[in-house]
């Protein structure tokens, strides 16, 4: 049972003092029934504080020095599975999302989103709902489907091996004509395929496609 008048007790985890201060201010400004009870600068400290304070929600950046953020989440949830974890990050790559979902996080908050949404996100995960910022909703749904589904094989992956090849070649600077030769298809077919892939991963320009490929390890920077 969720008691509406009860304060939602939040633990903030980030290695930067100023980011922690900023989060504290933003949460305070949202008013309502959310209270920051403590701050931690590392995964180790977060685990310790979860043991003695048992916060309702942990708001956490997973890029931390020392102990890996995801490992810290796993430990926290193994200690007390009533705690809800909301992950915040500047960018969510597929493998990060997969590991976080696997660890049992309840929400994903994208640093680029409006911070006014942070209170909503904290309340949602507190109420046992999942939350993710709009900008990454499709990505999370896709990955969640793959993690939760028993029959992964039945589901089309976001990108096939051939799609990845295409992204790699575009990211290496090959022209449509050159790629067409590699695949033995017409330039028109290749161009359509490229557009279709870009729409699917939600990018609208070549630079964005290149950055996607770099983040996902499909292409190298050098």
């Amino acid at each position: 049972m969720v008691d509406d008048s009860k304060q939602i007790r939040v633990l903030i985890v980030d290695d930067h003092e100023m980011i922690r201060g900023g989060l504290r201010t933003i949460i305070k400004r949202q008013g309502g029934n959310i209270t920051v009870v403590e701050e931690a600068e590392s995964g180790e400290r977060a685990i310790e504080l979860c043991k003695c304070l048992a916060p309702d929600v942990v708001v956490m950046d997973i890029k931390l020095p020392g102990m890996d953020g995801i490992d810290a989440i796993k430990t926290i949830l193994a200690l007390n599975n009533r705690i809800k974890v909301l992950v915040i990050s500047a960018n969510f790559a597929n493998h990060v999302v997969d590991r976080a979902l696997d660890a049992g996080v309840s929400g994903f908050f994208c640093k680029g989103s409006g911070w006014r949404e942070l209170g909503t996100a904290i309340e949602a995960v507190y109420r046992d709902q999942s939350y993710c910022s709009e900008s990454i909703a499709d990505l999370i749904k896709e990955r969640a489907g793959q993690i939760a589904g028993d029959s992964d094989a039945d589901k089309p992956a976001l990108l096939s091996a051939r799609d990845c090849d295409m992204i790699r070649l575009v990211s290496e600077g090959l022209s449509i004509n050159e790629i067409a030769k590699v695949f033995g298809r017409s330039p028109k077919t290749i161009d359509n395929k490229r557009r279709e892939i870009m729409a699917r991963i939600g990018v609208s320009s070549i630079p964005e496609l290149v950055k996607y490929a770099l983040r996902e390890g499909i292409s190298d920077l050098y």
Partner: peptide, 8 residues
């Protein structure tokens, strides 16, 4: 990052 400006 607005959160950083808030912290500052």
């Amino acid at each position: 990052h607005s959160v950083f400006r808030e912290g500052l």
